[in-house]
Each structure stands twice: as structure tokens, then as C-alpha cells.
């Protein structure tokens, strides 16, 4: 594929939960090496978009192209095999398995081929996880679970990393750590990241471009700097303490 093809292209996607339309025609593009953020109010459909990209639930209308290939109707596990990894809303780590086993599950795709080297990388990125490796996932603190969820996603050697609210419920210092880790991965390894955030200020600082979602539709998009300066965005998502 030529370099101009976006890595991820979401075209007019509509997703339904029964009769409820959660996404009402969404268009999003993510290019290689970018960090793109998606902000929006509660219930706007951000998580739904993330899950729709992974095929659970599948879009009823529209198309999702990954690397130019239509993955709209592809089963979730096959989408994952195309190297789209997600740290989903609610983290969804395996509570009864140890930290180490959780990371192993992340490496299922390559049958643990690169496990040893990759796990060391994760441990340098999140030293907390190294200390806690024999502990059960369910007994980790919220921040540690978030690190584990991101770490597990990274173990799949993703081409595209989807992060759904990685800062949820975390202390500012930890948020900073995690965001720095994401930035580092993006700069050093060219990892492409699509990130959903409630913490709009931090997300727009981190990302190059951003989308604003309202009621299942993208209402605004552009370079993050412009969105940060946009009075509408400021009024809706940024007023209230972050600056």
C-alpha cells in the first residue's frame, strides 16, 4: 500500500445496539505514525467507535478500512490478527491470571515467539508491572491495571493501538507517566495510536490531530493545536481547571 493510504479509515459508520443508533455516520482517518485523539461527552459513542473498529459490535452501515483492506465484516479475532490492539474501556484484564500470564495472553498472536524480548520492553516501560508480575491481575490497583491493559495490548506488536480512556480514575502523576510512555512508543517505534479521552486537555496536548464527537457524530476535527484554541471546544471540554 502506498504511504498515502490511511492506516485506518472509518467511512460513514453506523452502529446500533438493538434499535438504538449509537454511531450515526462517523468518518475518521488515522495515518501511520500519528497519535489521533477522540474527545466527546459521556455517551457520545466514543467507546462504541473503538469497539466497532474491532468488530464487536459490527457496523450496520458504512465501511472500515485497515491498511486499505475492508474489515467491516471480519470477525473480531481476525481483526486482532491484523495487528489492531486495544486497551478497552474498563481495561478488561484477566483478573484471576497473574500479570505475567496476562502479558502472555497478549502475545497469543505470535505464539509467544517474541515474548521474552517484548515482555522486557513492557517491564522497562512500566517497572510497576515487573514488581507485580506474580500478582493476580484482579488485585492490582487501578493504575497498575491500566498499565497492564496497555502492556497486554502492546504485546501483540500492534500496527494500530486503540486506547479507551487510559487516564480513567488515575492520579495525575500516573496519567503523566502513561502519556509519556505512549509518546515514547510513538516517537521511537512509530506506533500509531488512536486514543479516546475524557481528559481532553492532556489528550490534545499529546496528539497531533483530534476529533470531537457529539451524539454519535463527528462534530469537529482538526490539528490538536487548533482544537485547543477553539472557543467552542474550550467551552465544552476544557473549561474547568486544566489550564
Amino acid at each position: 500500500m502506498n504511504a498515502q493510504t490511511p492506516l485506518l479509515k472509518v467511512e460513514g459508520v453506523e452502529t446500533y445496539y438493538g434499535a438504538i443508533r449509537a454511531l450515526a455516520g462517523v468518518d475518521v482517518e488515522v495515518h501511520r505514525g500519528e497519535i489521533v485523539c477522540l474527545i466527546g461527552a459521556n455517551g457520545a459513542g466514543k467507546s462504541t467507535l473503538m469497539m466497532t473498529i474491532c468488530g464487536q459490535p459490527q457496523a450496520r452501515q458504512g465501511r472500515i478500512l485497515f491498511d486499505g483492506e475492508d474489515i467491516t465484516r471480519v470477525p473480531t479475532h481476525l481483526i486482532a490478527r491484523k495487528r489492531i490492539a486495544q486497551s478497552p474501556e474498563g481495561r478488561r484484564i484477566f483478573p484471576r491470571m497473574t500479570v505475567y500470564e496476562n502479558l502472555q495472553m497478549g502475545a497469543s498472536l505470535d505464539n509467544q515467539t517474541y515474548f521474552k524480548e517484548d515482555v522486557e520492553k513492557i517491564f522497562t516501560l512500566f517497572p510497576r508491572l515487573k514488581e507485580r508480575q506474580a500478582q493476580r491481575g484482579g488485585t492490582l490497583s487501578g493504575g497498575e491495571q491500566q498499565m497492564l491493559s496497555i502492556g497486554r495490548a502492546l504485546m501483540a506488536r500492534p500496527k494500530l493501538l486503540l486506547l479507551d480512556e487510559p487516564s480513567l480514575g488515575l492520579a495525575p502523576l500516573i496519567v503523566k507517566q502513561i502519556f509519556e510512555a505512549i509518546k515514547l512508543l510513538n516517537q521511537q517505534e512509530g506506533l500509531t495510536v488512536f486514543i479516546v479521552e475524557q481528559n481532553a486537555f492532556a489528550a490534545l496536548k499529546l496528539s497531533g490531530r483530534g476529533y470531537v464527537m457529539v451524539n454519535g457524530k463527528v462534530s469537529m476535527e482538526g490539528p490538536s493545536k487548533e482544537l485547543l484554541a477553539n472557543p467552542e471546544v474550550r467551552a465544552a471540554y476544557l473549561e474547568g481547571g486544566h489550564h
Binding site: P75, H77, P88, R92, I93, F94, P95, M105, S108
Partner: peptide, 15 residues
């Protein structure tokens, strides 16, 4: 074992 814990997470890991 992973299936027992979280089916959705399993699928997103390519299982």
C-alpha cells in the same frame, strides 16, 4: 482460562 475470565477481551487478543 482467559475465556472464563473475559470473552470480549479474548477476542480482541486474536483468540
Amino acid at each position: 482460562e482467559a475465556l472464563r475470565e473475559d470473552e470480549i477481551a479474548c477476542r480482541s487478543l486474536g483468540i
